[in-house]
């Protein structure tokens, strides 16, 4: 029990957020939205980590969260840089059109 809210609620919320992220990644074609969805998934996990960390009174879960946030930030920085380059060259960030590696 965290502040009166049962742990199950946190788990459910994380799961929903995560699934939204997955579906977004799979269904959308815009690279930026896909990115956001990936962030969503990461944050769903973060939320879960934090909840359990508090539940068990164990700070190591929160340490992980910081790591993930740092990695995610770096990823976004590199990813967005690539995307902006792609956009400059192709005037689009539609992933279906990014199939140059085929053949």
């Amino acid at each position: 029990m965290l502040n009166g809210i049962p742990i199950n609620y946190y788990i459910m919320l994380s799961a929903i957020l995560f699934i939204i992220g997955v579906v977004g990644v799979m269904a959308r074609r815009n690279a930026i939205i896909i990115f956001m969805c990936i962030e969503l998934m990461l944050n769903a996990v973060n939320l879960l980590l934090v909840s359990f960390s508090t539940l068990h009174n164990d700070a190591s879960g929160q340490v992980f969260v910081f790591f993930i946030m740092a990695v995610a930030a770096a990823e976004v920085a590199v990813g967005l840089a690539i995307l902006s380059m792609v956009y400059r060259h192709l005037k689009t960030v539609d992933i279906d059109l990014l199939n140059r590696l085929k053949n």
Partner: peptide, 13 residues
């Protein structure tokens, strides 16, 4: 190896 990133992600999931 279609080249469609969407398909790759789908396959990955």
């Amino acid at each position: 190896q279609t080249g469609h990133i969407g398909f790759y992600i789908f396959a990955m999931v």
